[in-house]
Simulated assay, not measured.
Amino acid sequence: MPKNIYVFLAEGFEETEAIGTIDLLRRAGLPTHIVTIEDVPHVTGAHGIAVQADLSIREVYSADVRALVLPGGLPGVTNLDSSPRLHELIHDAVGDGKLLAAICAAPSIYGRLGLLQGKEATAYPGFETQLQGAKPTASPVVRSGNFITAKSAAYTFDFALAIIEALEGKAKADEVASAIIYQRH
């Protein structure tokens, strides 16, 4: 069974959404890898924070995927969406029934690829129109089928905990929330 969760970063990613999610997934004991879509070891976020990647996107193989995670931020989302390899990995994950998660502006990538057809989804205000085929909702975090979408950086912990719950169950998500003294919404 594939075990890896891949969090994809591109220049201009939203740091809170990326780092907060990575941190909680790793606290849950989930093998979580930071992946850059560029062929460089570092990627810089929208607010100037540089992050060391674990892997380049060319080192990610569909057979190893348990979940794909896309943080928001601009121009990070635009840069992610320009990666044909990321699109390929996303399509493979959908075909294999893997978990796909995106927060803030990033759910728009799944929408533009036509993958949210008939699913409930949320995104940063103003990006709902790019959730093509989805049933937009005002909820801050939504799980619909194998997709988890979240509205903004303010909901990063809820987003990460939803991913943990989807992969490892509610008890594990509650354990991680309790360890950081976080009240789940």
Rank of each mutant, 00 (worst) to 15 (best):
Y61T: 05
A63R: 14
D64K: 02
V65E: 02
R66G: 01
A67V: 07
A67I: 04
L68Y: 04
V69E: 04
V69N: 02
L70R: 06
L70N: 06
P71E: 10
G72Y: 12
G72Q: 14
G72S: 12
G73F: 10
P75S: 11
P75F: 11
G76S: 12
G76W: 13
V77M: 14
T78A: 15
T78I: 12
N79T: 12
S83G: 08
P84G: 02
P84F: 01
P84V: 04
R85S: 02
R85A: 14
R85C: 00
L86Q: 08
H87F: 02
H87E: 14
E88T: 14
E88M: 05
I90R: 03
H91M: 13
D92S: 03
D92P: 01
V94S: 00
G95D: 10
D96I: 00
G97R: 07
L99N: 03
L99V: 08
L100N: 01
A102V: 07
A102G: 14
I103R: 08
C104Y: 03
C104W: 04
A105S: 14
I109K: 01
R112V: 00
R112D: 13
G114T: 06
G114F: 07
L116E: 08
Q117L: 09
G118L: 00
G118F: 07
K119G: 01
K119Y: 12
E120N: 10
A121W: 08
A121E: 10
A121Y: 08
T122D: 03
A123P: 03
Y124H: 15
Y124I: 00
P125Q: 07
P125Y: 12
P125W: 08
G126I: 06
G126P: 08
F127R: 04
F127T: 04
T129P: 02
Q130G: 00
Q130H: 15
L131F: 11
Q132D: 10
Q132V: 15
G133M: 10
A134F: 07
P136S: 05
P136R: 06
P136G: 02
